[in-house]
Amino acid sequence: MSIIEDGANIRLEGLCRVEDAEPLTVLLQSGRFETVDISSCDGLHSAVTQALLVFGPTIIGEAADPFVRDWIAPALRAQRQPDQGEV
């Protein structure tokens, strides 16, 4: 289990695989969560990344995995910025 509900925050832990995209979608769609914490994330499948991009929660934390930390997270944050005016 790599998706953990934690108040208004979702924690991604370990390797997030393709099948995790669906439960994450369900949670993000519920509107109950504002942030996704990736600090214990060891890898993000593209489908999971895509769900984060589509629903646009605030990404918090420094991921353990260097590729997620240095590339995926900044790319997600960069995409989110233009929309923030509307939020």
Binding site: V18, A21, E22, L24, T25, Q29, S46, A47, T49, Q50, A51, L53, V54
Partner: peptide, 11 residues
């Protein structure tokens, strides 16, 4: 948003 398909690759 309504019927978002997480397994349809849109990246």
């Amino acid at each position: 948003g309504a019927l978002y398909d997480p397994f349809h690759c849109r990246l």
